[in-house]
Design a protein around this nucleic acid. Sequence first.
DNA 1: CTGTTAGCGCCTTCAT
DNA 2: ATGAAGGCGCTAACAG
Lengths: 336, 336
Amino acid sequence: MSTIKKVCQLAGVSTATVSRALKNPDMVNVKTRERIFKAIAEAGYRPNVLASSVKTGRSNSLVVLVPNLSNPFFLKIIQGIEQAAQESGYSVLLGDTQGDPAREHEYAGMVLSNRADGLIHLDHSFPFSKNDERLAENVAMVSVCERIVADKKYPVVELDNYSACRALANHLVSYGHQNFGVICGQKESQIYRDRLGGIKSVLTEEAIELDDSLVVGGEYSIEAGETGARELLANPNRPTAIFCFNDDIAIGAIHEIKKHGLRVPDDISVVGFDNIKVSGYIDPPLTTIDQPAYEMGRTAVEVVLQQIKNKTLLRDREILPFRLLERASSGQVATR
Amino acid sequence: MSTIKKVCQLAGVSTATVSRALKNPDMVNVKTRERIFKAIAEAGYRPNVLASSVKTGRSNSLVVLVPNLSNPFFLKIIQGIEQAAQESGYSVLLGDTQGDPAREHEYAGMVLSNRADGLIHLDHSFPFSKNDERLAENVAMVSVCERIVADKKYPVVELDNYSACRALANHLVSYGHQNFGVICGQKESQIYRDRLGGIKSVLTEEAIELDDSLVVGGEYSIEAGETGARELLANPNRPTAIFCFNDDIAIGAIHEIKKHGLRVPDDISVVGFDNIKVSGYIDPPLTTIDQPAYEMGRTAVEVVLQQIKNKTLLRDREILPFRLLERASSGQVATR
DNA sequence: CTGTTAGCGCCTTCAT
DNA sequence: ATGAAGGCGCTAACAG
């Protein structure tokens, strides 16, 4: 590994000039610049970014905390993050936390130890350990989809989950459904409250009751969809339509429903949430809410970079638009 | 951000002692150690990893180059990488290259600029630019699934694609199929040659010809599966069984086949490759090759860390086992 | 426009 | 067991 000094020797200049030739080329004479670049090529020199980071105090990277890398929806967000970060000269440190606080603390600590300049969190937990709480106060941090639960308010990039679920509920109600089931993800999150709130608000308007025993689940996975559907099918008060809190859950639910010899949507309608790629290709194609995951990722980067650059944030909530995608997994209520 | 100096003042010791207390605790007196840790807590001190990296020349991170973050199979590999890296104290820099050489060069350059100690590549291209070729000679690098095409041989973690495709072909032949279609991914890769070779070797043994016009595709995506299937269905010599070079392709193909009013597997059998999660939940569940993606990721980390630590590699090919998963998308050949 | 100088924050001999 | 001092590779005033 050749260092800046080797280049100096070859070009017969000082380290400062080499540094300048690289950062502010117009601050150095064309002739010397040429000489320097020739020397750089000859030496096979690459600046040591770590060394400059020590000087500048900027690592030019962002940590991204994901609770579950297997979720295609998160992946789409990460793609957006990665893209936007790269365009701004930042690199992305990936942290798969699996919802484990210890891992969150470890990854979040990267911002404290100068390995990263900012943090994007795809979950609602406060990612720093109790010990680091004080230090974390001035950290650039943004959450996507979920709101971070903490004393201080951190900015968030999200969807209007309440309205999106109202749209789904209205859609199903318009098909004559009266009896609903819900297979949700984690219950302790804002998302859960917003989504269930949205559904309930419509049902209340329609004077429809939501049976508490028909709200099942607790995890965003295909398996949770299977288990949840099984539970709902076994309920004496079997629903004619099921809200699934993401597409993976819906995929599992549909699979399970079919396994019981029932048809979707003829016997039971199923709707999902997210619009992951494959949801348009399963049988039947899934009615779902399209979340602009990629854009959400991009926006998160913008927000966190604004914080890093100390520009004041215009707003601490970025709410992106959703779209109801009516596909074939939802339809007229079955006449019993 | 407090630095080591603040800790020194508080503890009344020198920087050297603090540094030691952190790295080699037993080299320092218990009493002073305690004092130091108290000071650390009080100051809210976190060592600046970048600064130590400059000293040690180690960044303790790995770059991972992925051609396509949307592919769930790659994701599984990345999970394995992330996990194993973390366990060894390394962090993962994610580079979504989209197969673009310019991006590959940029990310690969991270190893040259000390931002990363090693490189894991999920593709077959030589990721460094022509300019960096010389510098890249001693870089720790490993490819997963694909073999890197270069003068120097780099280690690879892969599957015996040839045998896996033989297994698939034998499976389909045993059901009486004689007329095959193939929807492949990129054609310039070793994988393509190995997989097609495996299929052909079985067909040759069975004295079955593979019509060249029935080998279509060129990209690993759901859309490529749709297009490919459409092409194959339109072929006057319509196949009764289709090899898809990954599960996404198979998902697209099955969707398209159904759209044409045909049934899988009654009219046409379809087999995939990878065993992504959702492949067991589509209708019909997909017959496919299970690749131990997670393990592949873990192995890749082991290999690259061995290179970094300059231990000689035991072997430069790690071949992991596959499993043929016979599910419902393949069956008896249709009697016309 | 260029060189000198003084660090960035940490680690690591070398003494003591 | 501890401290002093020098340096990792680079940047950023400050002179000239």
